[in-house]
Design a protein around this nucleic acid. Structure first.
Length: 286
DNA sequence: CGTTAGGTGACCCACGGCTA
DNA sequence: TAGCCGTGGGTCACCTAACG
C-alpha cells in the first residue's frame, strides 16, 4: 500500500492551496497531512470518517480538519461524474507565530486548536464559509490570503460549529499503526452492508480476535463493533432522508438481520427512532 | 531485566434465530 | 410476543517472545 502521509504542493505564487476536485478526483483514502484543511462539499454526498467520528455529508457541508488528523471522504458512486468539492489547505505557520500571539488573533488561535478534533460548520457560518471558499477559487493570490484570514476570523467568532472526533485522535507522522487502521477502515467501508465477523477483520491484520479487539480499542477509543454500528447507522440515516425505502428495507440493507435490533441500535446512536429521525430531518430541511 | 506486543483460555453478556 | 439457547463479541488474567 502507498504511504498515507500526504505532501501538499503549492505553486510558486501561493503559500497555501485552494483546489476544486470533480468526479473521481474527489475520492480519497484514509490519510492525514500537516496542513489544516477546509473542505466544502459543493455538490456530492457520502460518508466521512474524521478521527474516530463517522458521519454522512451532503451538498453544502463544510468541515475543518486539523493538522495530522486522519480523515477520509467516501463519495457515493452517483457523484462520480457530477460531484464537486473545494478544499483549502494551509500550514498554520504561514500565519506566523507573532500573528497568532496578537491579542486580536486570540479567537483564531483557539479555533486552530479546536480543529484538532475536526469541526463541522453549522447554520449561517456554514453558508458564509462556503461563499468565501467559493470566492477564493477565483481570487488573485493576495485576495486569497485576505479571504483566508476573513474565513478564520468569521468562523472563530461565530462558534457555530460542532467537534467531530474525540480529543487525542491525532496521527503522529511515521506511526506504523496507520496502515493497519486504514486497512480495517477501508475493509469496513466496503463490506459494512454484509455480515462482518471479528475473526475476519482480525485476520486482515494477522491477529487473533482478542488481540485485535484490544488493539482496535487502544487506537480508536471504541470497540470494532461500535465502529461498525456507527458506519451502518450513518448509512441508514442517509437512506431514511432519501425517502425511497421503508425502515425494514433500510435495516436489511445496512447489514441488520433483525429489525427490532436495528431500531434499538438506531436509537442508541441517534437518540431517536428511525421514523422520528426522518420526520425531524424533513421538518428542518423543508 | 524490564517493557511491550501479541496469543491462549475462560468467562460474561448481548444478539439473533427458532419455536410455541 | 416471549422465552430458550447457540453463537459471537468484549475483556480479563496470564503467558511467551522479542527487543533494547
Amino acid at each position: 500500500m502507498k504511504p498515507v502521509l500526504r505532501q501538499v504542493t503549492h505553486s510558486p505564487e501561493h503559500s497555501f492551496a485552494v483546489r476544486k476536485d470533480t468526479g473521481g478526483d474527489m475520492q480519497n483514502t484514509w490519510h492525514y497531512h500537516a496542513e489544516i484543511e477546509f473542505l466544502y462539499i459543493r455538490h456530492s454526498a457520502g460518508t466521512w470518517l474524521i478521527g474516530d467520528h463517522i458521519g454522512h455529508f451532503q451538498s453544502g457541508d463544510v468541515v475543518i480538519t486539523g493538522a495530522n488528523l486522519p480523515h477520509c471522504f467516501r463519495h457515493e458512486t452517483t457523484y462520480m461524474d457530477s460531484g464537486e468539492t473545494i478544499c483549502v489547505k494551509f500550514l498554520p505557520e504561514i500565519l506566523g507565530d507573532h500573528f497568532l500571539q496578537l491579542p486580536e488573533a486570540k479567537s483564531i488561535r483557539a479555533l486552530l486548536g479546536k480543529a484538532s478534533t475536526g469541526l463541522q460548520l453549522m447554520g449561517k457560518t456554514k453558508e458564509m464559509a462556503a461563499a468565501l471558499i467559493e470566492a477564493m477559487l477565483m481570487d488573485t493570490p493576495g485576495k486569497k490570503l485576505v479571504h483566508l484570514l476573513l474565513l478564520l476570523q468569521e468562523v472563530s467568532e461565530s462558534r457555530d460549529y460542532v467537534p467531530l472526533s474525540s480529543k487525542g485522535f491525532i496521527q503522529s507522522p511515521g506511526n506504523s499503526d496507520e496502515e493497519r487502521i486504514r486497512t480495517i477502515f477501508e475493509y469496513t467501508m466496503k463490506h459494512y452492508h454484509e455480515r462482518i465477523s471479528l475473526d475476519t477483520v482480525a485476520s486482515l491484520l494477522n491477529m487473533t480476535r482478542p488481540s485485535f479487539c484490544r488493539y482496535f480499542k487502544s487506537k480508536t477509543k471504541k470497540t470494532y463493533v461500535e465502529f461498525l454500528m456507527e458506519v451502518r447507522i450513518g448509512y441508514a440515516c442517509k437512506l431514511l432522508v432519501e425517502d425511497e425505502k421503508n425502515v425494514a428495507e433500510i435495516g436489511y440493507e445496512c447489514g441488520y438481520n433483525n429489525i427490532s435490533h436495528f431500531n434499538h441500535q438506531f436509537k442508541s446512536i441517534t437518540g431517536k427512532r428511525p421514523l422520528e429521525y426522518k420526520r425531524d430531518y424533513l421538518e428542518q430541511h423543508s
